[in-house]
């Protein structure tokens, strides 16, 4: 059905129906598809396969030998998980710059501030403990395992 266009002189023409279409369809669709593919990269990269969460093991001989109630880290588990990097950094500063090897935990217990002698004494299984997160799913470009 064409719509007539009227003026003071009567019908002067017929309005054509402008075709409803996507102009430059191929370009537009290519752009949309490229964008969607780009931002769904994590989805098709993993293709739905489940990634097991890191599983740091705590069954070293030293820990096993401890009585059940003393099996505690310097601070509580959550604190250690979230802040161990800052704690180690503070230890380094206080040991190297001030020569102070004493660390008092929040519960008041005293420890020697030393990665080698305190942390790794219990956690002697670096590959099953540290590397579980640090190498497998949390590699840092500037963190070099040796």
């Amino acid at each position: 059905m064409k719509e007539p266009v009227k003026s003071e002189f009567g019908t002067v023409g017929e309005k054509p129906k402008v075709e409803k279409k996507i102009y430059n369809r191929n370009l537009i669709l290519a752009g949309i598809i490229a964008f969607v593919v780009l931002i769904t990269f994590p989805i098709w990269n993993l293709q739905g396969k489940s990634v097991p969460p890191p599983d740091p093991k705590l069954d070293t001989p030293v820990i096993q030998k401890m009585p059940e109630k003393d099996r505690k880290c310097i601070e509580d588990k959550n604190y250690m998980r979230n802040y161990h990097m800052q704690m180690l950094d503070n230890w380094r500063n206080q040991v190297v710059r001030n020569g102070n090897r004493q660390y008092t935990s929040l519960s008041g217990k005293k420890y020697t501030a030393s990665l080698q002698n305190t942390c790794l004494e219990c956690h002697s299984n670096k590959s099953q403990f540290c590397d579980q997160c640090h190498l497998k799913c949390w590699p840092r470009a500037s963190w070099r395992p040796n």
């Binding site: 994590p42 989805i43 993993l46 990634v51 969460p53 998980r81 799913c137």
Partner: peptide, 19 residues
């Protein structure tokens, strides 16, 4: 105010793998 970053990653991976 640090959070458990490995748990965050587990959550994110769960979202993109639809589990």
């Amino acid at each position: 105010f640090k959070v458990d970053i490995t748990a965050v990653k587990q959550l994110a991976l769960g979202l993109v793998t639809f589990k």
